[in-house]
Design a protein around this nucleic acid. Sequence first.
RNA 1: GGCGGCGUACCCAAGUGGCUAAGGGGAAGGUCUGCAAAACCUUUAUUCGCGAGUUCGAUUCUCGCCGCCGCCUCCA
Length: 481
Amino acid sequence: MANAGPPVSLYNTLTRRVEPLVTSEPGHVRMYVCGVTVYDLAHVGHGRMLLVFDVLARFLEWVGQRVTYVRNVTDVEDKIIHRAADAGETAAALADRMTLAFFDDMRGLGCRTPDVEPRATEHVPEMVELISRLEERGIAYRIDGDVYFNVPSFPPYGKLSNRRLEDLQAGARVEVAEQKRHPSDFVLWKGAKPGEPTWESPFGPGRPGWHIECSAMSTRYLGQPFDLHGGGEDLIFPHHENEIAQSEAASGELFARHWVHVAFLRLGEEKMSKSLGNIVTIRAALQAHSREALRLGLLQTHYRSPLEFTTVLLEEAQRTLVRLYDTLARIDATGAGASEAKDSEDAAACRAEFREALADDLNTPRALAALHDAVRAANRLLDANRTPEAVAVGAAMRDCGGVLGILQGDPEATLACWRSSRAAQAGLSDAEIQERIERRRAARTARDFKAADAIRQELADAGIDLKDSPDGTTTWTLRRG
RNA sequence: GGCGGCGUACCCAAGUGGCUAAGGGGAAGGUCUGCAAAACCUUUAUUCGCGAGUUCGAUUCUCGCCGCCGCCUCCA
């Protein structure tokens, strides 16, 4: 934990500035993140967004805040209904299946479980109540079983996305449902259609519109106003704009104080998106790369900058992790326990710089630099036989790494695991490699360096580097990169 | 058409109105080693898309241009 330091600041989409995170209750952050619509597997773009908020929640706790983290699951929506119909299953069955898959992916990514993960279908009464209130206030109106939100009756509309109603009309490319009073009006309640999930309501049978669920569920669990609302940047308009309109028009109170949006992940030159079909699912990424490499790769770029998802990115992250774990393993190998740690300038600098970087609009690349500095410091201390100080630096690395969700494994075990899995990819088993190491050892003992080097070369061709230690033992690593 | 973002070395990527433009990868040299690997040390952008302006001074502020991306429609 690291209490001392500057206040945590974040870019606020509402004010378009980086500003300190102010909470209703000092020391307690209530945050709501728009999760996913469960009609298909989550992809790495979702992963990036979810990871950013995971790190934010961990960081806030690390600096001593209490965090209440709510992340919804949208389990009733047009796409789910259509997808399910195409596949010949019920919408509920598809949604359930994908919800479980999503939870599984979050576990795979190592994301902290939110305190509440509300599902839309379990909160319809709250939504109905909110719509009723809007209707009472004359802001919502009914047409043919649908209920719409009348945008012009909420003058601040557009304050989040910096848009004016006139501009929206001018640019509208979509043909407007002619029954709406205003082209920007959006649906709160969709009248029942045959074969679709349906709930009873004062406005007749039907199902909720998309935006209303977040308004209802966020305030249900966090009150109003709550402190932080987040999601992908594509949600700024219209989703979050509409949430604000619904909640503030219904209550007359501020909805959420701080709005945080994560930039897109791109695949090639384009946004990764299901409609474009250029998708890498989280589970596919986890099959090809370690969880920590995926996390680190996605955190190497600041969350407000677009990030291109490439193999090189993840290989570099993996290389970095091997370096970090190699150093931790070196520290462990000294046999010095935590009780022998002697606080050093380097350890303190690592913690302080790491904390300051993340407090400054969650600057993960800068925080990572602090970790790199710590690695070099630790290795230098080890080279100088200043073990107690190195142990302290190692502890700082693990401590900071925990905020990013990395470096929590046992170094030797983690490295061994990565070695085996990558050796397997290279078509060699641990035993086969061990056998070659043994033959080479024999050759070296006989000072037959030619034979020894031939074996080394053979392994090198498979991407395996050998490392001889002073005590005569030989270990191996997959060549970095 | 409206709104917004980005363009920093071979690659990834922070950052700042003026002190040496972080960090990582890669590359080169060195120490160590039988040779390597790892580690450590050194080197690798007189320069921050282009042009102009503001300023004593701009990569950082303003304007214009070029290029790329996103939102304006379901989308994390």
